[in-house]
Structure formats: structure tokens, C-alpha cells
Design a binder for these strands. Sequence first.
DNA 1: AAACTAGTGGGACACCTGTCCCACTAGTCG
DNA 2: CGACTAGTGGGACAGGTGTCCCACTAGTTT
Lengths: 179, 179
Amino acid sequence: MVRPPADGRRARGERRRRELLAATLRVIEREGVSGVSHRSVAREAGLPSSSSTYYYATLDDLLIATLTWSAREMALGFGAVKPTPGSVARFLAEAVGPHRGRTLAEYELYLLAARRPELRPAARRWITLLSSVFGTMQPAAFLGFVAALDGLLIQGLIADFPPTAEQLEPVVSLLMPPR
Amino acid sequence: MVRPPADGRRARGERRRRELLAATLRVIEREGVSGVSHRSVAREAGLPSSSSTYYYATLDDLLIATLTWSAREMALGFGAVKPTPGSVARFLAEAVGPHRGRTLAEYELYLLAARRPELRPAARRWITLLSSVFGTMQPAAFLGFVAALDGLLIQGLIADFPPTAEQLEPVVSLLMPPR
DNA sequence: AAACTAGTGGGACACCTGTCCCACTAGTCG
DNA sequence: CGACTAGTGGGACAGGTGTCCCACTAGTTT
């Protein structure tokens, strides 16, 4: 990485950029993608609304940046999960339980990618990450496994009571042959 | 069914109600849930905007009615699919290909159900329908199978080139033991 | 020092929104 | 017939929106 001579203004700018992305994600968690506006995000971040348009000229820019950033964050989180049925089931249960809001936000952005081709690579990062962890499975089984993870998460989001790791484990086990 | 003496006004009213729902679905297909407003729906249906608020006082009413209605329609469509890997794969390929818009609309409403508990029964109709068709599978395998169908559909929606029935069949086969 | 640049914050524009309201038509029923 | 009801369509209100603009501050370079 080339490090240009530090510019205090630019450094603060980058910090604000990230604050805006984090604020956007919080707004999506709370109100959904439809709750995102330059003003609502700026309000959430405690900044004047013009700062939102300064860093992200259009709303699309803001959403694209948010999905890209949050997909990378989520991928980092999943990287620490061991590829065993128990660990995967626990990860899923946490995603639809304690981290429900975050997961929901992730899937709203995920679906947004269906309408905005430029978002797709970021949305698929999840899939490519999984393939690097479970690369030893045979292709068809792997595709079914990844699809099932997505489905279990979504169905967990529309359940009245989110499933527990104990309930999920047998399902995951069946999909994930022991190597 | 009790049949009250036919009232021409009411009959036309019911027709308009359905026209509004169909128009709402078309708007969602084209622009997403965020494109739905009383005015945009009325415009799509060729009616004055006040007719939209007359039949569905709030936007929520309209969205709820649309999801409920479209879930029933989709369930009817899937009812005709034979429970064989080939048929299921063809159904999926059509859902993410020719019927892409409709499927996308369905999933946007699906995700909306995660935020609106009153939408959930309608959203889960899909799952209960499947369980009536594939009830002979053992529970854990069935849950994985249903989840995988959802995942395959969503991933098909964010793919640059939607998968074909030929590509999907081996995956479906693995998930659906011949039994 | 002056010149330049990145960021700041307040305000403005035209537009679209949800919802309510009301005068009105046209079917139905006693 | 008159009374009633379902539906109609046009308009209004206050409020939120994306985006652009501009005078301004403060950090950086020459």
C-alpha cells in the first residue's frame, strides 16, 4: 500500500464516510431499505444532510457502498466459523436470533442486487466465501448446501419463533456429509 | 356460500379491487415494493388515485392484500408440478427465467413479511403447500429441501445468467431422494 | 505569505407522497 | 316515488424527498 503524505482533512473524510455507512446499516436494520434517505442517514449519523450527498452523490451510491462494505464485514464474520454441522447451526441460529436485524438488512440488500447488476458481485461474495471453505464437497451437493443455508436464514426471518441451533443441526448435518 | 342478491355496484367494486391488486403486482415487478404508492398503482390500473385509497385505506392494507392474493395464486401454480426432480428443476428454471419479475416480486413481499407479522401466514403458505406434496420425506430432509428451493430461487435472481433446468436438476435430485 | 483544496453546513428548488375530504353519480330497496 | 348505500373523481393539506448550490472554514502546499 502506498501511503500518501497524511492529510488530516482526508483522514477525517474517510472516517465520516464509514460513519455514514454504519448509520445507513442501522437505518436499514430499523426501518428497511425504504427508510434510507440522505436526510435519515445523516440524522442517524448526527451530521448535516449535505454531508451525505457530499460523500455519496446519489442514494444509489450510498446503498451500493453500504452493501459492499457490509458484505465484506459479514464474510469476515463467517470466516471464523468451523465447517462442522454444530458450528454452522449455531451460526445460523445467531443470525436469525440475536443478529436478526443485521441479517434482515443483509437480505434486503441481497434482493436489491437482483435489480442492480452492479451490486451482484458484492452480494455473491457470501457464496464465493463458502466455496472456499467447503471446496471439498462435490459440486451439486455444494450448491444445494449453499442454497439451503440461504433458505434456512430467510425462513428463519419469517418464522414467529426463530429456530434454535438444536433444531437446525440435524438439517445442516444431512446437507453437509462429514467430508 | 350464501349468495346475497346480486348487487351490480358491489360486483364492479370487487372487480376493481382485483384490478388494483394486479396493478400493484405489476408495479412491484417493474419497480420493486418501493415503487408502490396509491398514485402509482392507480395510474397503472388506469383509475383515479382516490379509488386506491377507497378500497385500501392505507398502503399497508394494499401490500398485505397483494401478498395474500399473489401467494395463493403462486401456490395454485405450484400445485400442478409433479414431485419429480425434473419437474421441480423445470419449475425453478422458469421461475428465475421467464417469470423472473414475478418471482422477484414474490420475494420482496416475502421479505416484507419479516417486518410485518401479519404477512407471515401468507408468506408461509408456500412452505405448507410443499409439505402437503412432499409429506412423505423425513422431517429434517424435508426442511433442508424446502430451504434449498428458496435458496436456489434467490441465488437464481442475483445470477448474471439464470440457471437452466439442466443445471438445476442434479442439485434437486440430490436433495430429493427418489423414495 | 498566498494559492489551493477538502470538507462543511445551511438553504433552496421542484416534485412526489399518504391521507383525508366532499360534492357527486348510479345502483338498490322499501 | 324517495331513502339509502357503494362507488367515483377531483382536489387539498402538510410533510418528506433527491439533488444542487454557495458562502464559508480549515488544512496543505508552494
